[in-house]
């Protein structure tokens, strides 16, 4: 009997035991890679974004746009993050891998597994990953929160439960009735996080019980962000926390762009509200967040070819030289251009 682990990457280099196929390792090796994020995943995101806008699915469009924008930094960081994760639990690496997994999930339109950003790939991906594993399989895992139940259902196989005391899984409908015991177990550190499966009843009693449980759980925030891997790292920063502004370039009479650019139908937040407008974006292939700018700045940056002086570039663009110099100064400050 082959047992299958959900596609949640585990840290370290330990091989899965004999007879166990670790889909987390397959995900890490095959999908969480720079070439995948900057290539096919980015293309799929673009296509899905266009489709979502055409069908006026604006909240989804906002998420797809954000993923597309983030794919520059994620693609630049993910290979090193995967290497660090293979060396051991590392919170900053986990933040990158988590965002990469989310980007991949949105690109494919895959569902989400349990807690954290990890995807439930489609049947074609699962069949390819399990191709040589034979037909006699069971999924091994804790239950809902680690995706084992969802994976077993997707594969149509049994779930071989392996309880994990680090996470207290509670059916949502039972939260108010079991409140005292949940709070006690979490306060005593008998579990590090809580996961509510199924719908939580409406009403103050259930809401207060959930609030108390989440407040008492020692690693709840890390678990919510990254699922089980979140419990294995000392610190679990967010994706945004591992990014920082690009260093400023050098000013000079001849400039060249140091990032890629795009003209997109808005910011993610505005697009999610159905508010479409052309916005310029500076996209950095490094640990820097994308920056929204006026479209004119994108046109200027695209004209900075590293050979012509700014006044000549202004002439080509038919723009006032003083304004071009000011926008260029701001682009240099943003790290989007530098003197050559």
């Amino acid at each position: 009997m082959i047992r299958v682990r959900p596609p949640v990457p585990r840290p370290g280099r330990a091989e899965a035991p004999e007879g166990v196929v670790d889909l987390g390792a397959r995900l890490l090796e095959g999908e969480l890679r720079g070439g995948v994020l900057s290539g096919p995943a980015r293309e799929m995101l673009r296509d899905r974004l266009q489709d979502a806008i055409e069908h006026r699915q604006y909240p989804l469009a906002g998420r797809l746009l954000e993923a597309w924008i983030d794919s520059w930094a994620a693609a630049a960081l993910v290979d090193e993050a995967a290497a660090r994760w293979r060396a051991g639990a590392d919170g900053r690496a986990l933040a990158v891998l988590g965002r990469a997994a989310e980007i991949l999930r949105l690109a494919h339109g895959w569902g989400r597994l349990g807690a954290g950003p990890w995807p439930l790939p489609d049947r074609a991906w699962l069949d390819a990953a399990l191709g040589e594993a034979g037909a006699a399989r069971a999924v091994t895992g804790a239950g809902t929160w680690d995706g084992a139940e969802a994976l077993a259902a997707a594969l149509g196989v049994e779930l071989d439960r392996a309880p994990d005391p680090r996470v207290l899984e509670v059916p949502g409908r039972e939260v108010a009735r079991r409140r005292a015991g949940i709070g006690r177990a979490l306060a005593r550190g008998e579990a590090l996080a809580v996961f509510f499966s199924g719908p939580i009843p409406d009403g103050p009693e259930a809401r207060l019980a959930v609030g108390e449980a989440r407040m008492e759980a020692r690693r709840q925030e890390a678990f919510d962000r990254y699922g089980l891997p979140g419990l294995l790292v000392e610190e679990a920063p967010t994706w945004r926390e591992v990014l920082g502004p690009a260093p400023a370039g050098r000013e000079g009479p001849v400039l060249a762009a140091t990032c890629e650019t795009a003209l997109l139908p808005g910011t993610p937040a505005r697009l999610a509200r159905g508010d479409l407008d052309t916005v310029g974006w500076l996209l950095f292939a490094g640990p820097h967040p994308a920056v929204a700018v006026h479209p004119a700045a994108v046109h200027l940056l695209r004209a900075l070819d590293g050979t012509a002086e700014l006044d000549a570039v202004a002439g080509r663009l038919g723009a006032p030289p003083a304004e071009v110099r000011e926008v260029a100064r701001q682009l240099v400050a943003l790290g989007a251009a530098t003197a050559v």
Partner: peptide, 21 residues
């Protein structure tokens, strides 16, 4: 410090109910 701020952010839970809880 265990942060109690969640008590102020629960929809449908008024302050007297939150304080009693």
């Amino acid at each position: 410090i265990r942060a109690l701020d969640y008590l102020y952010a629960l929809p449908g839970v008024d302050r007297p109910t939150a304080y009693a809880d």
